[in-house]
Amino acid sequence: MKKEECPQDDGSLGKMTKEVCYVTDPSGKYVTELSTGWNVKSEALDAAWADIEQRVASAREKVLKGEASPVLFFMERRLMDMPTLTAYTGFWKWSIHRHLTPAGFNKLSPKKLGKYAEAFNVSVEDLKSMTIHED
């Protein structure tokens, strides 16, 4: 990539920092250039987040319909897959599968609820009611 071709588009990363790109100068020598972002990749990130939001919304609906427990909702919201959640809670995969059902969730002891709340970084009350705060 030539130095003058280094994209300077707006991107979410631009809020935090410019990033280093390796580009060639007119003589062909490699130099670094700071870039504010590139549309192609910010669109990739947007696509990923649109998908996440959609998964969160459909998880919420499932919980409201009684097909799943709030654990599913917060798993999607915190972008956690099963191995990540087992690591954060210390629960076995099969017991998390049980807690993902409304019946299994309702039987949880306060101590276990506390573990989920901690893993999802929410209060137990918010965990039960699927209340979210911007953070």
């Binding site: 390796y22 580009v23 490699y30 990749k41 990130l45 998908d51």
Partner: peptide
Amino acid sequence: GLYLAQLVRMQEEIGTGGGGFRYIYAA
């Protein structure tokens, strides 16, 4: 499309210097 978006993110997201580290290697 989402799969391709993930490919592009791995290739270009913070840290590769552009072109999936190929430019850094050229440097």
